[in-house]
Design a protein around this nucleic acid. Sequence first.
RNA 1: CGGGGUGUAGCGCAGUUGGCAGCGCGCUGCGUUUGGGACGCAGAGGUCGGCGGUUCGAGUCCGCCCACCCCGACCA
Length: 477
Amino acid sequence: MNIEKLPTQQENFSEWYNQVIQRAELADYAPVRGCMVVRPYGWAIWENIQKALDQRFKETGHVNAAFPLFIPMSFLEKEKEHIEGFAPELAIVTIGGGQTLEEPLVVRPTSETVIGHMYAKWIKSYRDLPVLINQWANVVRWEMRTRLFLRTLEFYWQEGHTAHETAQEGQEETLRMLDVYADFAINEAAVPVVKGRKSESEKFAGADTTYSIEAMMGDTRALQSGTSHNLGQHFAKAFNIQYLDRNNELQYCWTTSWGLSTRFVGAIIMAHGDDQGLILPPRLAPIQVVIVPIYKNDEEKAAVLPVAEKIEKALSAFRVKLDAREEMTPGFKFNDWELRGVPLRIEIGPKDVAKEAVMLARRDIPGRDGKISIGIEGLAEKVGDLLVEIQAALLQRATDFREAHTTTPSDYAGLQEAVQNGWALAHWCGNPECEANVKEDTKATIRNIPFEMQGESGKCIICGAPATDKVIFSKAY
RNA sequence: CGGGGUGUAGCGCAGUUGGCAGCGCGCUGCGUUUGGGACGCAGAGGUCGGCGGUUCGAGUCCGCCCACCCCGACCA
């Protein structure tokens, strides 16, 4: 392990990001360019994300299934916008079993097409609707520039695919799942997000409308953290997903899709981390409490270790780890677990044993300010309270940070200035040219058109034309 | 695909005019340590990215190739 300090977020945020991931053993670079290995600690975070989301999917009536990795090339070509959008980033298999394939197989970049094909077989009647299926899967998109978790050639995600009787039901489903994502982000990951609609240029290839949740990272850039698409009847028409309605008339279904990926692990890292390393939200942290025993000799060890073990048992309701490694000093362990973002640390040494107490150290409050001595009696309850408190504090801090770095410039010069270090809220007339100009001039894009600001009319900050949409401009990952 | 850069131990790097393959961290063993990143001693670990050329001799010079990184066009 490299014992040197991390670069600070201030001096080099992206280097801080890369190093914290590798040193905390979340992920490592794979032998293939642009691919990553998710290591056990990183995967444990993903598993906790999966649990929190899967539970919400089930509660809203969805079931899981698995669709194949390979998709016939011709399937993607059936929806014009879809193939145009994805063509540049497809991985295509042309040889199988030593033979050149008659039809190339695409490694799925997303599964609307195969799933649409199957839905056409399965759906006959309005009685078959709605179909509410999700799958947990890996997908491949051949990206030019990659970053661990944020953009890799292969990534893990869930993709929900639903089919409905009416346009309205489709729209309701699209927004329902966006709400599920926002609820997850805020209440499980403590990452504040803004729900909104994507502009035409940023929407999913083949969607009527794309919605997203956008979060601000520690360097003020935006990260699209989850998306929900109203696909209208595009895929239903491309794949003949039809049903007989109540009047015995053949109708096309209305479909949706929605996804959240391992990119969200990157969101957690960048939204909460500090110069010491990760800070994981208690609800998703693989280890919520780490116990570090402290002793100088065998005598002290004999006094301390059994108590530490007793505490470990007393805290079995939490994800707790006793770090009894002999070959490391307590000081090393403190730094090590801080790097790994464990929300709460318990230090127990001879002095504490004598007092029948322990030291509790909060990860979100560095140094002595975050430490308190507390009696062993009723410790579990106190730990539970503190974890809830830390979870809330992380959300509050991230929200405050976002607000402190969000401005409402009044003219174009102000906008250009504002997006250099933060989000800018401003009116936009809806013209793609204005959007493109901002990107050209500043590298910032329209992240989304927030629901909460709809209905405020004004003048386009770029061209001055009347505008009904107020949008977030920001540099993004 | 364009522009720039780097390939030497697991990681980070040094290697002079061409002359025995090195340093720091990490790793292994033993001992001393342990309340905020301990120390000593002894070890293990190399196709110097690959192929070819020049030379008595190449990590070093020349040519070709390969890989990766950074910047741009694309993106959850």
